[in-house]
């Protein structure tokens, strides 16, 4: 059974005003097949955690470790992390001009599997996943994310999740900017991926509405660079009613 362990993670970024501390000791263990939701106010460091797991060069790890089945993820290049089984659905996916979705997906799949996927089944898989996500066939020949609407970009992220079959996926606000229908479609995609591969999920969100479709096993409240409280799905409901105020009080005083 796979496990992703984040241990006492401290992360900073360089800003014009100097080094800024963002993550201040994050501890989190995700087992295969588990769904963890992370909720927290703007600027609390949720995306920083997501990007640090994926290895974005902007974020500087000061201390701590991230282990995937015991192997130190922090020592791996960005692409090696993906090949090891990590996936990040980004909050703001970037456009890649001149690279079609088809070409991109095939290149990524080949990189992750270490060999080109058998052409027939691959084309079938891509079509099926696109149909499931209600993505028009024409997207296949469009350039990655170029001119995609916010919702289309998110679907494209989940398309990759389904096709690349990671062991662990971090979804950074995949729900924001989606209307109800799209939210359902995307959630179904995530649930399908989980049912097919048994992946572990770290779901970053501001709202409980996605949790109606994707049921978390654990909910973590993220405040000021660390996990302030954790519980079951009932915690999410409480957050929806009460907001983050009671967590914010201490950090706001200083």
């Amino acid at each position: 059974m796979s496990v992703l362990e984040i241990k006492d993670l401290h992360v900073s970024v360089e800003t014009d005003q100097g080094t800024k501390q963002i993550l201040r000791g994050v501890n989190l263990t995700i087992n295969e097949g588990e769904i963890h939701a992370i909720m927290g106010p703007n600027g609390s460091g949720k995306s920083t955690l997501a990007y640090t797991i994926a290895g974005h060069p902007k974020y500087h790890v000061e201390s701590g470790s991230i282990l995937l089945d015991g192997a130190e993820v922090l020592k791996m290049t960005v692409d090696a992390r993906a090949r090891a089984g990590l996936f990040l659905a980004m909050q703001y996916p970037v456009e890649i001009p001149g690279v079609t979705v088809t070409n991109f997906l095939r290149t990524a799949k080949t990189a992750i599997e270490g060999e080109a996927p058998p052409i027939r089944t691959w084309i079938k898989d891509v079509r099926q996943s696109m149909t499931n996500l209600r993505m028009d066939k024409t997207f296949a020949e469009r350039n990655v994310n170029e001119g995609f609407s916010g919702g289309e970009k998110k679907r494209n992220e989940i398309l990759q999740l389904e096709l690349l079959k990671p062991k662990f996926a971090v979804l950074d606000e995949t729900d924001s900017g989606l209307d109800v229908d799209a939210l359902k479609i995307v959630s179904e995609g995530v649930n399908r991926a989980k049912a097919n591969t048994g992946l572990g999920l770290l779901l970053i969100t501001h709202y409980t509405r996605i949790l109606r479709y994707i049921h978390p096993d654990f909910v973590h409240v993220f405040v000021n660079g660390r996990i302030a409280e954790q519980g079951g799905s009932e915690l999410a409901d409480r957050l929806e009613d009460e907001g983050y105020d009671r967590f914010l009080v201490p950090s706001n005083v200083g």
Binding site: A54, G55, H56, P57, T77, V78, D79, R81, A82, R83, F87, L88, M90, P93, V94, E95, I96, P97, G98, V99, N103, F104, T107, A108, A111, I112, N143, Q160, L164
Partner: peptide
């Protein structure tokens, strides 16, 4: 950011650069 996006999908830096230049 393009490079990071491609690499985060398992594509090596070298290959990612090629994809972007070719695309351009």
């Amino acid at each position: 950011e393009q490079l990071f996006y491609l690499q985060s999908r398992g594509i090596t830096e070298k290959e990612a650069r090629r994809l972007v230049v070719r695309g351009f």
